[in-house]
Design a protein around this nucleic acid. Structure first.
Ligand SMILES: [Zn+2]
Length: 285
DNA sequence: ACATATGTTCTTCC
DNA sequence: GGGAAGAACATATG
């Protein structure tokens, strides 16, 4: 479900009120998420929440000061902090159908609730029908993508460098998380429409001018989608259960057979890398 | 029954 | 060895 704009929306909303809150408890309702270590999270304070590609990173502070033991006649002795007392930055990935919901009213958790993190003022709920979402307390930190944050900038020069001699479709390059962090199927289709480039083109065959069009298209598409709080085409909702608005700006995604808004031609669908791909054959070359 | 779904990862084959 | 295609994960919908 969520790509960069949806994950960015959740991070901004969480950052609006959650930092400083103390975790009261964590319930894992889906064993696929892994049970271990999670108990140690109770008592920790939330730090910042930030986006890393499509990951939601949640900083969690220590549970309090390290315990100190007084020994008579020998002054004080610090106890070595346990590993579970270290700071950590958890990583949540929503994959295909994950959602987060902030629930302040009591009442039952929604269907497909997989994880509940409780605070004094409410609870944070992970809803995920397909159960692909992952939640890691101490994720292995991996090398950042070559373009770590395309919301800030998707530089044409970096793209051209990455694409050199590669024959994969330009769409697959944009969606490869090792290259560009955060772009998924909807926004790859939309960016290439705005850039006027056929998604099936070999990446290595694009000119500098064409990569500049991609950069410019991304600078239009991604910030607008964030302002719209994401694309609600099926059941995406923001942290407070509201639909996004970016579905009103889609030009090609899921619009097979419908008229192109620019040339009135027909939007077509094909498959690239196993994923549905929509484009206007007249406007995208 | 089959195809499809906003994602990632592993296997297989060239 | 790089890369591309396919399958797998689990569940719903048309
Ligand atoms: Zn067109």
């Amino acid at each position: 479900m969520p790509e960069l704009p949806e994950v960015e929306t959740l991070c901004r909303q969480l950052n609006g009120f959650l930092p400083g809150a103390k975790i009261l408890g964590i319930d894992i309702l889906d064993p696929r998420l892994g049970k271990r270590e999670v108990e140690g999270l109770a008592g920790r304070k939330i730090g910042g929440i930030y986006r890393q590609g499509k990951y939601i990173r949640i900083e969690m502070g220590k549970r309090g000061q390290n315990p100190v033991i007084s020994e008579p006649g020998k002054g004080q002795k610090k106890i070595k902090p346990k590993r579970s007392d270290d700071r950590l930055t958890a990583a949540l990935h929503l994959r295909m159908t994950g959602r987060l919901l902030w629930q302040t009213s009591g009442g039952p958790a929604p269907s497909y609730t997989r994880l509940i993190i409780s605070f004094a003022t409410g609870r944070l709920i992970l809803i995920d029908p397909r159960r692909f979402a992952t939640f890691c307390i101490r994720p292995v930190e991996t090398a950042p993508a070559l373009v770590a944050n395309p919301l800030e900038e998707l530089p044409s020069q970096s793209l051209k460098k990455i694409a050199e001699k590669r024959r994969l479709p330009v769409k697959s390059l944009l969606m490869d998380q090792r290259f560009v962090a955060g772009i998924g199927n909807i926004y790859a289709c939309e960016i290439l429409y705005h850039a006027g480039i056929d998604p099936r083109r070999q990446a290595g065959g694009l000119s500098g001018a064409e990569w500049r069009k991609v950069q410019k298209a991304s600078a239009t598409v991604l910030p607008r989608a964030v302002e719209c709080r994401g694309t609600s085409i099926s059941d995406w909702r923001d942290l407070f259960g509201r639909s996004g608005e970016n579905q009103n700006h889609l030009e090609v995604y899921s619009r097979e057979g419908k008229p192109c808004h620019r040339c009135r031609g027909t939007i077509e669908r094909t498959k690239i890398g196993g994923r549905g791909t929509w484009f206007c054959p007249a406007c995208q070359r």
